[in-house]
Each structure stands twice: as C-alpha cells, then as structure tokens.
Simulated assay, not measured.
Amino acid sequence: MQRDSDPPSRKRSGEPASTEEAGGLKDSDRESPPDDKPQGFVPADEAEYEKPHEEGPHGRAVLAIERKLEHRTEEEAAAAASPFALMGYFTTPKDIYHACEALRDAGYSRFDAHTPFPVHGLERAMGLKASPLPWLVLGGGAAGLSGGILLAWYTQFYDYPLIISGKPAFSYQAFIPIFFELTVLVAALTCFFGLFALGRLPSFFHPTMTHPSFPRATDDAFFISVEVSDPKFDASETRSLLQRVGAQGIREVSS
C-alpha cells in the first residue's frame, strides 16, 4: 500500500522510501547558507581603505592612472593660461630700489613693485611719470566752484530775482559757504572715483597672487613683476637680469 509521503518514484516502483528522501533535504543542505561571496577584492578591514595605493591590490595601476590624469589636467590648465609676468623678490628695501633702477636703465617700462610698506623714492627709481590725479582733483574743484556760482546767479538773478534792502539780486557774499561746500564736495568725489579708475579698482584677483611666496609682500619681502607685454621683455634676458640684481624665487605667473 502506498503512502502519500512516499516520493513519486517510490510510488511507481513500489519500493519503500529512504529516510533521507522521506525527510526532504539533508541537514547539511538546510544549514549551509547561500553562496553570497562578493566578486572582486573587498578589504577585510575598513582600515584597508586608508592604506596607500601601493599597499593594496592593483594599487600601482590605480596610482599610475591618477597621476596621469593629474598631469593631463595640469598641462591643460597651463596651456589655457597665458603668461602675465616674471616675478622675483628681495629681502631689503635697498635691494628692490637698485633692482628698479636696473630695470629702468635697461629700458623696461611695464613693471611694478609690491612692498609691505612705502619705500621713499621708489617711484623715481622705477621712472614713473607724475600721476594725473592732482589735475583731476583740481578740475573737479573748479567745476564745483563754477557750478555753485552758476546756481546762485540763476536762482537769485535770473529765475526769481528779489530786491531786499536795496541789495543787488546777485549778492555773492551771501553764498560763499555754498561755493566752498560745492568745491570741496566735487573735488573729493573726483579724487575718490579718479583713484579707482587709475588704479583699475575694484580688483578681486591679480596674476601676481599666484606666486607661492606673494603673501610675504605684506610681511618681509619686496616683489618685482616684469610684465610680458613690455616691449623689452625676453624670457631668458629678463630672468638673467633679475638674477644679476639678486632676485630670489624667480618664476613666471599666469593670468
């Protein structure tokens, strides 16, 4: 007689079912977990992730690829940037003064000095021309004075003349404070905005800031930058001249 628990094969053959078949899966089959081992290399400890590339599997190949990408990025950035100037620095005001004289005597005209404090006479050593700012301020003051006089004349003599106590309509003595205030106001505004225009301000970035030692320009170093746009500029000759006058940290900066 066949039982419902017998396997189908045993039912057909009439042979009794074995204990393993009657019980279903083996104990070893029930207890063994599925094979979920990850593919590839997985560090046994998270500290493996902190190790240099050379210490881990395939590390040298990964490091070589990263370095190649870094070099390519640097080359692309260098190709995109255009050279702005050749820079070097000195450690004393005397050295930068003589260096500016040497550049001036060599015929350079487009170079600048960056110092942590004013160096008296440096503008003469650089061969700089007088600033047009005083003339701009004088013109602004004259325009303010002329505007004040014109305003007093137009309002009191032409537009709404009044004869008070027999005085003439245009009594300029009463308006001298107005003339003075307008003169000072327009001259001050001309000085402020003229200084911005001549100094090309505001400027939030300048290529000289890319020199690695440039922060010392506010402390103890005196920098000179010779622009590439100078008619006398030649990379090798300009570098040689800066070396002769004692410049340190000579390097090219890009915009």
Rank of each mutant, 00 (worst) to 15 (best):
Leu136Glu: 04
Glu46Ile: 12
Pro43His: 07
Ala143Asp: 02
Ala22Pro: 01
Ala44Gly: 15
Leu25Gly: 04
Met87Ser: 05
Ala79Asp: 09
Phe90Val: 03
Pro57Asp: 13
Ser109Glu: 14
Ala106Pro: 09
Ser28Arg: 15
Ala64Cys: 03
Ala130Glu: 15
Val137Gln: 02
Val42Lys: 12
Leu103Asn: 03
Glu75Pro: 00
Ala125Val: 00
Leu136Met: 13
Ala77Met: 12
Glu123Asn: 04
Ala44Pro: 02
Phe90Asn: 02
Gly59Phe: 03
Gly127Asn: 01
Tyr108Trp: 07
Leu122Ala: 06
Phe111Gly: 00
Gly139Val: 11
Asp95Gln: 15
Ala85Tyr: 02
Phe41Trp: 15
Cys100Ala: 12
Gly121Glu: 05
Pro93Tyr: 03
Glu76Leu: 14
Pro116Val: 13
Pro34Met: 12
Thr115Met: 11
Ala142Glu: 05
Leu122His: 01
Asp29Ile: 02
Glu21Trp: 01
Arg110Cys: 05
Thr92Asn: 11
Gly24Arg: 06
Val137Arg: 03
Gly107Leu: 10
Arg72Glu: 13
Pro52Ile: 11
Gly24Thr: 05
Gly23Leu: 14
Glu75Met: 11
Thr91Trp: 12
Pro16Val: 05
Pro132Arg: 04
Glu74Pro: 00
Ser28Ala: 15
Ala102Glu: 08
Pro132Asp: 08
Arg124His: 06
Leu136Arg: 07
Tyr108Ala: 02
Gly107Cys: 13
Arg104Val: 05
Leu86Asp: 03
Phe84Glu: 08
Phe41Arg: 07
Glu74Val: 14
Lys37Trp: 06
Ser109Ala: 06
Pro118Leu: 07
His71Gly: 12
His98Ala: 10
Asp45Phe: 09
Gly121Asp: 09
Asp29Asn: 03
Ser82Gly: 06
Asp45Cys: 04
Leu133Trp: 00
Gly59Ser: 13
Asp105His: 13
Glu70His: 11
Cys100Leu: 01
Ala78Ser: 14
Glu74Ile: 12
Asp112Gly: 07
Gly88Glu: 13
Glu74Ala: 14
Gly141Leu: 13
Lys94Glu: 15
Met87Ala: 09
Ala106Ile: 07
Lys37Gln: 11
Thr92Phe: 09
Glu74His: 14
Trp135Lys: 05
Tyr97Met: 09
Ala142Pro: 01
Ala85Glu: 06
Ala61Ser: 04
Arg60Ala: 15
Leu103Phe: 15
Val62Thr: 10
Gly141Ser: 02
Ser109Phe: 05
His58Arg: 08
Ala85Lys: 02
Gly127Ser: 00
Met126Val: 01
Ala22Gln: 02
His71Arg: 14
Gly140Gln: 09
Thr92Glu: 09
Pro57Lys: 10
Gly24Glu: 11
Glu123Lys: 01
Pro16Lys: 08
Asp45Ser: 15
Ala64Phe: 03
Leu103Val: 04
Ala78Thr: 11
Glu66Tyr: 04
Trp135Cys: 04
Glu31Gln: 08
Phe117Asn: 08
Gly40Arg: 07
Phe41Asn: 02
Ser28Glu: 15
Arg104Lys: 14
Pro16Cys: 00
Arg72Leu: 09
Leu128Ala: 11
Val119Asp: 01
Thr91Met: 06
Gly88Pro: 00
His98Arg: 14
Ala130Ile: 07
Glu48Tyr: 10
Pro34Gly: 13
Ala64Arg: 09
Glu66Asp: 06
Gly139Glu: 06
